[in-house]
């Protein structure tokens, strides 16, 4: 190879690299929803087969489990939050979730995230977002949301009939008389209340793939 050819190769290589990196500027890195797109085929089945939607009874038990680091994330509006929310929950609107990805990704192995909405639609969107942006933590969705929670744990039974009649549209349809936030007795149900209920336990502490690297 004459020297001229090598120089041409260098020039070509530099041009290709520059164009490729310019392409990166144009294409950009994946947005959270695009990221979900890449993961969907692997994770969507979990939603469809209802592997990650947990019964209110299971959540009630988790709330009293000292060995689990429970992160209760409420993704509802402030108004619904003020009317009623679970004891120990944090209110984080869905759009603010990606910004918290470092915290969620750094959860210990016994960390469990449960997403809570009035029904399931919003919580499911939040679940997808967290799985896509926070290295797939142990995250679950409260099946039936707050509406079902209150129907099962709030004193009196009139709520159930109300819910049976109305459409599922992620609004707080359970009749809450006063804004009590988490001071409502159903915010942390008594153990005897929960013991009678049976449920399929779905929460599994997955051993997540650990990022290892660095020079020893």
């Amino acid at each position: 190879m004459t020297p001229v050819s090598i120089k041409h190769l260098h020039g070509l290589g530099a041009t290709v690299l520059l164009l490729a990196s310019a392409g990166l500027v144009w294409h950009g890195q994946p947005t959270p929803s695009e990221k979900w797109g890449f993961l969907a085929h692997e994770l969507e089945p979990r939603l469809i087969e209802r592997q990650v939607q947990i019964d209110p009874a299971e959540l009630a038990e988790l709330m009293r489990n000292n060995f689990i680091d429970l992160q209760l994330i409420d993704v509802r509006d402030e108004r619904d939050w003020n009317l009623f929310h679970l004891w120990g929950a944090q209110r984080i609107p869905t759009q603010d979730l990606p910004a918290q990805h470092k915290r969620f990704a750094a959860l210990p192995d016994n960390g469990v995230i449960v997403l809570v909405g009035n029904d399931e639609a919003r919580a499911t969107e939040a679940w997808k977002l967290i799985m896509a942006t926070a290295s797939q933590p142990n995250a679950y969705i409260l099946a039936g949301g707050i509406n079902r929670w209150l129907a099962e744990f709030a004193p009196g039974h009139h709520g159930r009939s109300v819910l049976a009649r109305e459409q599922v549209n992620d609004t707080l349809r359970y009749p809450v008389k006063m804004a009590m936030g988490s001071r409502h007795p159903a915010a942390l149900p008594d153990t005897h209340h929960v013991k009678d209920l049976s449920f399929t336990s779905k929460v599994k502490l997955q051993k997540r793939m650990v990022m290892k690297g660095g020079c020893g």
Binding site: A20, S21, G23, L24, G28, E34, G213, G214
Partner: peptide, 25 residues
Amino acid sequence: ILVAAVLIFWSTAIGWLDYDYVWVN
């Protein structure tokens, strides 16, 4: 470094590599 960076970030862009799991010193 630069060839690797271009390849790495194109891979993350098209979903071949998950940057969340990449070790960043």
